[in-house]
């Protein structure tokens, strides 16, 4: 575990040593804040629902941008060879990098709590729904990042990693929006697979283990694929 944390710390610092972290945080807060404040008075209700839907939309682009370099850059520079000849396991490498990116996004998202203060001064927002919403967002970020780190392990080209991650994430995001075009059986499968369906459950303030398990199993699945991809280098 010490090694996972050492790697996570190094990755996290490198976000702040480069402009990446500042650009991500600033842009994210600007877009979220702008969209939120323009719709706040139209909706005329003291809740963060609009904020959550904006953030979910922004994440589609932001997560691949944050995750695209995680492994592809190591491959391009050749530093992966040094990293993997250290006495660490592939899963430790993947987990360390994943946690660093996760922490950056969680911090960014929690900074939007400032809007909660605004709302709270205007009315009485539902605490359960707010908590559920943030929990849901954090789980979604987890899924998106696991997809991002997976695609980053596929290629040494960051742009390829970005685009492939975006396509997969966007497909998961769209699933419950196209459900109406499919017959009953497929519709329920799609609904179950869709990211937003489970989010809406959690964001109501109802924390159901089925939704949590859905997110965790997706995260596990993509992290597992990433580890497999890294290990496959040995046998090529």
């Amino acid at each position: 575990m010490q090694q996972v944390l050492a790697l996570a710390r190094k990755e996290f610092r490198s976000y702040f040593d480069s402009p990446v972290a500042y650009v991500v945080i600033t842009l994210f807060l600007l877009i979220a804040g702008w969209q939120f404040s323009t719709s706040l008075f139209l909706s005329n209700s003291p809740d963060l629902r609009t904020l959550f839907s904006i953030v979910r939309f922004i994440l589609l682009f932001f997560i691949p941008a944050v995750s695209m370099r995680l492994i592809s850059e190591e491959k391009r520079l050749g530093t992966i060879e040094l990293l993997l000849t250290l006495p660490i396991k592939e899963w430790q490498l993947v987990l360390g990098k994943y946690l660093a990116a996760y922490l950056l996004i969680i911090i960014t998202i929690l900074l939007t709590l400032i809007h909660y203060i605004t709302i709270a001064s205007l009315g009485q927002p539902d605490l359960g729904a707010t908590f559920g919403g943030y929990l849901g967002l954090i789980l979604i970020v987890g899924v998106y990042l696991s997809i991002g780190i997976f695609t980053s392990s596929l290629s040494q080209n960051q742009i390829v990693a970005f685009i492939v991650a975006f396509v997969i994430i966007f497909a998961l995001f769209l699933l419950d929006k196209v459900v109406m075009f499919f017959p009953g059986f497929l519709a329920s499968v799609f609904e179950y697979l869709s990211i937003d369906y489970h989010f809406n459950n959690i964001a109501r303030g109802v924390i159901d283990s089925r939704d949590i398990i859905y997110y965790l199993s997706l995260i596990f699945f993509f992290l597992f694929l990433t580890v497999q991809t890294l290990e496959s280098r040995k046998w090529k």
Binding site: K10, S14, D17, S18, L77, G78, T79, E81, L82, T85
Partner: peptide, 9 residues
């Protein structure tokens, strides 16, 4: 390794 790949930042 060949070419000493290091973290440049």
């Amino acid at each position: 390794p060949e070419n000493a790949p290091l973290y440049l930042d």
